[in-house]
Design a protein around this nucleic acid. Structure first.
Lengths: 248, 248
DNA sequence: CAATCGTGATGACGCAGGTTAATTTTGGTG
DNA sequence: CACCAAAATTAACCTGCGTCATCACGATTG
C-alpha cells in the first residue's frame, strides 16, 4: 500500500477503497533515491508525477547566483509534484533531501482517472490545493514572523504533518535535516538558525539534534510561531494513528 | 462575456467555445462592490466562488495583532477563490482593494461541470495551480530579494499579468494601489517603499504614481527583480491583445 | 475657506539578522 | 582507533530596513 498515507486524515476527502485501489494501480514504478538528488528540473516537460512514500523531498527556485529558495518540504504521503499533471512544465526544481522511496504515476493514468472518476479527481485537486495553502502559510511566516517565530512555525507545521502521517507522537520525531537545511527553509542563514536553536533550547521550547527533534512545550512553541494548523486541513475527528510507528 | 479574460493566453488551456458557454451559464449573479470590503472570511464554509471581472482584489492572512500579510493580488480575469470549491473552507480572507465587478459561480454548478466535462475540469484545476505558482514566486521574492528587488519583481509580475489581460501595453498601466498597499504586498513598511520608489525613479527604471505605473526600462527592471515570467504560464505564441484597451 | 484626512516624502536613530572567520563537535570509514 | 568531512557553535563587526517623528500637498467636506 504505497498510497497508504496519501490524504490520510484530510478533512472530508478520505479515499474510498475503490479510489485507493485505482490509485495503487496507477503506479508504474517504485524507486529509491539517494539524498540531495534533483528529480525534476524547472522548465522541462514531464509526463509523470511522484508520490513520496518514505523520506523527505523539497521544491526550490534558484536565483541568478545559484542560491536557492525552498518553496516546499514534502513528507511521506505527499504527492510531491501532482501539480505537474495539469501544468505539464514546472516553475521550480524538485529534489530529495534525505534518502527516499517514491512511487511514479504516469500522467496517462491520471488522464484515465479524470475521465472515469470525477470524485477522485476532485480529491487529487484538493491535495494540490493543500500544498498551495501551505505556500500561503509560508508567505505569512516570511512576511510577519521574526527568525525565532519562523523556525517555531516550521517545526510546529512539520510536527502536525508528521503526526497526521503517523510519524510523530506530537512531541518527538525524526527529521534528517541540518541547520543549514532549516536556514534555506526559513529564509535565514545557518549562523542565525544556530542562534535561534540555542534560544529555543534555553527557553525550554524545543531541542533540535539533526536526527531528532524534541518539542518540549508544544503550546508555547505554537504561540511563539503564531501557528494555527487550520491551513493543513487535517480532520481532527480521526484521532492520531496510534497504531503507526513514531520513530524514536 | 464575463469570463472573457479567464485563462486568456494561458499556455495549452485556452477554452473551447462550448466550455466558455458552460462557464458563462454557471454564473448565478453579477455584483459590484466598494473598495476595501471583505468578501470571504477564513474558516467560514462557502458554497460559491468569485470570478473577478473588473478591479483588484486581495487575499490575506491576519496575524495575532491584526496586522495582515497579503498572499495574493488578483486582477481582472482571475478566478479569485476557485480553490474554495474543493477546499470548502478557506485558510485566508478575501477582500476588494479597489471597486470591483465580480461574477458569482455556485459550487453546485462546478459539481455539474466536473461530472460532465473532465477537460474543462482540468483547466479549472490548472487555473488554481497557476495561483500556487504565483505563491511560489512570492516566496522567492521574500526569501531572496532585497526591498528594491521585491518591488521591481512585483511590478514586473503585475505588468505581465495585465498585458495578458489586455490592460497594459507593456509600459504603462493603471493600478489603484497606494504605497502602503505595495508595502503590504512586498512585506515592507510604507516608509521603506517610499525610499524604494525614489530609487527606482532616480534610476529611471519605473515611476509609480498611485493611479498610473510607468515602466521606463522593462528589461533593467526585470533584471533588478530577477523576474522570469515562466511561472505565469502565459502562452507567447499568442501576441498581446492589441485590440483591447490599455487604460492611460 | 478652514478643517480634516489620505497619501507621499524625508530625516534621525536603533536593531535584527547578515557576513566573515575561527574553533569544536559529530559521525562515518578505512 | 585514527582520520576526515560535515555539521554545529561562537565571536566581532556591519548594514538594510524598521520605527518614530515631522511636514507638504491635494482632495473632501462642513
Amino acid at each position: 500500500m504505497f498510497t497508504e498515507r496519501f490524504l490520510r486524515d484530510k478533512s472530508g476527502v478520505s479515499l474510498e477503497p475503490a479510489e485507493r485501489d485505482r490509485l495503487e494501480a496507477a503506479i508504474s514504478e517504485i524507486q529509491t533515491l539517494a539524498p540531495r538528488r534533483t528529480v525534476v528540473r524547472a522548465g522541462e516537460p514531464i509526463d509523470q508525477s511522484t508520490l513520496l512514500v518514505e523520506g523527505i523531498m523539497s521544491r526550490y527556485i534558484d536565483d541568478r547566483h545559484g542560491l536557492r529558495q525552498l518553496v516546499a518540504v514534502h513528507l511521506p504521503g505527499d504527492f510531491v509534484d501532482l501539480h505537474a499533471y495539469p501544468l505539464k512544465i514546472l516553475d521550480h526544481d524538485v529534489a530529495t533531501m534525505t534518502a527516499v522511496t517514491i512511487a511514479i504515476v504516469p500522467h496517462a493514468e491520471l488522464d484515465a482517472i479524470t475521465r472515469e472518476m470525477p470524485q477522485l479527481t476532485r480529491k487529487l485537486w484538493f491535495a494540490t490545493l493543500v500544498d498551495a495553502a501551505i505556500h500561503r502559510a509560508w508567505l505569512f511566516r516570511f512576511g510577519r514572523l521574526d527568525a525565532i517565530g519562523r523556525v517555531a512555525h516550521f517545526l510546529c507545521e512539520t510536527n502536525a504533518r508528521l503526526v497526521s502521517a503517523g510519524l510523530s507522537d506530537g512531541r518527538r520525531f525524526a527529521l534528517g535535516l541540518t541547520q543549514t537545511d532549516l536556514a534555506e527553509i526559513c529564509g535565514l542563514t545557518n549562523v542565525h538558525v544556530n542562534r535561534v536553536m540555542r534560544h529555543l533550547r534555553e527557553e525550554r521550547l524545543c531541542i533540535f539534534r539533526s536526527s531528532l527533534v524534541e518539542i518540549l512545550d508544544p503550546e508555547r512553541l505554537a504561540t511563539r510561531g503564531q501557528f494555527d494548523p487550520a491551513y493543513l486541513y487535517i480532520d481532527h475527528r480521526t484521532p492520531a494513528h496510534s497504531s503507526s510507528n513514531p520513530r524514536p
